[in-house]
Design a protein around this nucleic acid. Structure first.
Lengths: 233, 233
DNA sequence: ACCTGAACACCGTTCAAGT
DNA sequence: ACCTGAACACCGTTCAAGT
C-alpha cells in the first residue's frame, strides 16, 4: 500500500471555492478533518489503559465520534491501525533514547552504552504497554517497510558502533562483539519484559525497587565485560 | 473456586446401578467421557498452531465435537481454559528441566546453573508458543492458587539455592546473589523472548544459529560472574 | 450430571447509500 | 472525498430445554 501521493503544495487541482482556513475546529460537521490522527491517538490511549489487546477499531471509532466503518477509510485493517500506533510509540521511544545519549560523555563508549541501557529501561518501565506494542511482533504484517523496523535498526546499529568503539579503546576484556551485543540486548530486553509480564513480584522486586534494580543489573553486566576488575564482593 | 471435593474412593453415595466399566470409549454418545481433558488438548494444539491468541473456546468445542456452550460446564471462562493449558505446559517444562538437572554433575553448582539455563532455553526455543503462554501473564486471574505459580516458585528457589551454593564454594567473584540471580534470569528470559518476539532476524541470528548462540550467551554471562578469569579475548 | 441450541452483546470488515 | 448504518461472519457467555 504505497500512500506516497501528497506533495505539499503543488498540483493545482480544480478550483475549490469554499476552502476557508482548514484549521479551525468548526464543530466537526461531517467530514472530520483529521480522523486518522484522532484514531491513532484514541488507540494510543487504549493501549495505555489496557494494553495492546484492549484496542478495538470500534472503540477507537466511538471515541473519535464516528461510525464503526469510518476507520476503514484510513486503515485497511486493525493491524494497520496497530502498526501506526507502534510507529508513534517507537518514535517517542527513540526520541527519549537520543535525548539521553546527547547528554552523555562523548569519550567513554562503555559509559555511553550504560547510558543507553538505562534510558531504554527507564522508558520501558514508565511505558510498559507502549513498550510491549513495539516489542512484540504480530502487530506487523511486513517487518520491512515499517518505520518501526527503521528506527529499531538504527538503534541496533548505534549500539553496535558503541561497543566496537569500546573494544577499540581497550575497555572490554572480551573480544566477540556480536556475543556481547546479543547478551546485552537479551539482558536489557529480558528485564523490561519481566516487568511487563509481571515477573517481579515472584522475584522479590517491588515497584519501588525496580528502577534501582535495573541500574544494578546493568552494572553487573558491564562489570562482567569490562576490563577493569572493579570492586569485588 | 476451591475444587477440592473428590476423595478417591470413600463417600458411598446413593446406589448407582448401571455404572459398568466407565473407561471404555463406547462411541461417545451424548455424555462425552472426558471433555475437560479433550478441550485442554485441543487448546494446546491451537496454541501450538497459532499462539495463545489463536485459542477460541468455540474452536476447541468444535474440535472436541461438542456445542459452543458445552465447555462452560467445565471452565467458567476462556481465561480458565487458558489457565489449565498453561498449567499443562508448565508441567511439561518443569519435567524437562528436572530431567536435564538430574543428569548434571552434583558437585559443581555453577555447572548445574549452566545446565539449567541451557535446558530452559532449549525448551523455550522448541516450544515457543507454549513458553509464551506460561510466561506472559494475562492468562491468570489470580497469580496465587495457580499450579503454574507453584511450579515456577520451585524453579526459582532451586536456582537461588544453586547460586548460593556456588558462592559458598567460592565459584563466584560477585557477592550480591540477588543481583546475579535477577540478571541471570533477565538474560535467559530475554533471550527466549527475543526468539518468540521475532527479534533474531534483525540481530543477525538465523534459526540455525540460535541454539549455539544461546549457549554462547549463557557462557558469556557465567564467565562474567565466575571467579576464574578464563580465557581472554 | 452433562450437553444442545438459540440467544445476547460484542468484534472486524464490507458496502451501498448518503453528504 | 469522506462518512453512515445496515449487514455478515465471527467471538465469549448464558440459559432454558433436552438426554
Amino acid at each position: 500500500m504505497p500512500a506516497a501521493s501528497k506533495p505539499p503544495a503543488a498540483k493545482a487541482g480544480p478550483a475549490k471555492p469554499r476552502r476557508r482556513n482548514a484549521r479551525a475546529p468548526a464543530a466537526r460537521p461531517y467530514h472530520h478533518g483529521d480522523l486518522r490522527r484522532v484514531l491513532i491517538d484514541a488507540a494510543l490511549q487504549l493501549v495505555g489503559e489496557g494494553g495492546p489487546e484492549a484496542v478495538s477499531v470500534r472503540e477507537a471509532a466511538r471515541r473519535a465520534g464516528v461510525s464503526p466503518g469510518a476507520p476503514f477509510r484510513h486503515f485497511p485493517s486493525r493491524d494497520a491501525l496497530m502498526n501506526a500506533v507502534a510507529e508513534e510509540a517507537q518514535r517517542r521511544f527513540r526520541a527519549e533514547i537520543e535525548a539521553a545519549l546527547s547528554a552523555a560523555p562523548a569519550g567513554d563508549p562503555l559509559g555511553r552504552f550504560r547510558c543507553l541501557g538505562l534510558a531504554y529501561l527507564r522508558w520501558a518501565m514508565k511505558n510498559p504497554t507502549h513498550f510491549e506494542i513495539i516489542s512484540s511482533r504480530r502487530f506487523f504484517d511486513h517487518d520491512r517497510a515499517s518505520g518501526v523496523s527503521q528506527d529499531n535498526a538504527e538503534l541496533i546499529d548505534l549500539t553496535e558502533r558503541m561497543l566496537a568503539e569500546a573494544f577499540a579503546q581497550g575497555q572490554l576484556r572480551v573480544g566477540d562483539l556480536k556475543r556481547v551485543q546479543i547478551a546485552g540486548r537479551a539482558l536489557i530486553y529480558g528485564f523490561a519484559r519481566m516487568n511487563i509480564d509481571g515477573h517481579f513480584p515472584r522475584w522479590g522486586v517491588t515497584g519501588a525497587d525496580a528502577g534501582r534494580t535495573a541500574e544494578d543489573v546493568l552494572d553487573l553486566f558491564i562489570e562482567g565485560i569490562a576490563k577493569v576488575p572493579g570492586k569485588s564482593a
